[in-house]
Computed example of a mutant assay.
Amino acid sequence: MKETISIKMLNTLQKAKTQLSDEAIRHIIDFVLSQMNDEHCFKNKGGQPDLYYTAFGWMLCFILGIKTDVNKMRKYLDSLDIEKLDLIHYAAFVRCSILADLSKNGKIITWLGSLKSKKVKKLTDFSGIPHDNPQSPYSKFIWLSLLEDTGNKLKDKSSFITEVEEYRLPNGGYRNLSKGLGATTNATVAALSVLGQLKGYETNRNVDFLRNLQQANGGFQGASASPVPDILSTATALFMLQCYGQKPKYDPEDFLEAHWLDSGGFCPTLIDETSDVEYTFYGLLALGTL
Rank of each mutant, 00 (worst) to 15 (best):
E165P: 01
E166R: 11
G172K: 09
Y174Q: 13
R175F: 00
N176E: 13
L177F: 11
S178P: 09
K179W: 15
G182F: 15
A183I: 06
T184L: 11
T184C: 06
T185M: 13
A187H: 14
T188N: 02
T188A: 00
V189F: 12
A190D: 03
A190R: 05
A190S: 15
A191V: 13
L192C: 13
S193D: 10
V194S: 06
L195C: 14
G196Y: 10
G196S: 10
G196I: 04
Q197K: 12
Q197P: 00
L198N: 13
L198I: 00
L198G: 14
Y201N: 14
E202C: 09
T203M: 10
T203S: 14
N204G: 14
N206P: 02
V207F: 06
V207T: 01
V207H: 06
D208P: 02
D208H: 08
D208E: 10
D208Y: 04
D208K: 05
L210T: 07
R211I: 08
R211M: 14
L213W: 11
L213S: 02
Q214C: 05
N217V: 03
F220R: 10
Q221K: 14
S224G: 10
S224Y: 12
P227W: 08
P227F: 06
V228Q: 04
I231V: 09
I231Q: 01
L232V: 05
L232T: 06
T234S: 15
T236F: 10
T236C: 07
A237N: 06
F239R: 02
Q242I: 02
Q242D: 06
C243L: 07
Y244V: 03
Y244W: 04
Y244L: 03
Y244A: 04
G245I: 00
K247A: 05
P248M: 01
K249R: 15
Y250G: 08
E253F: 09
D254K: 14
A258V: 02
L261T: 05
L261I: 03
D262R: 12
G264I: 08
G265K: 06
G265M: 14
C267M: 07
P268F: 13
L270I: 13
I271M: 14
I271G: 13
E273V: 11
S275M: 07
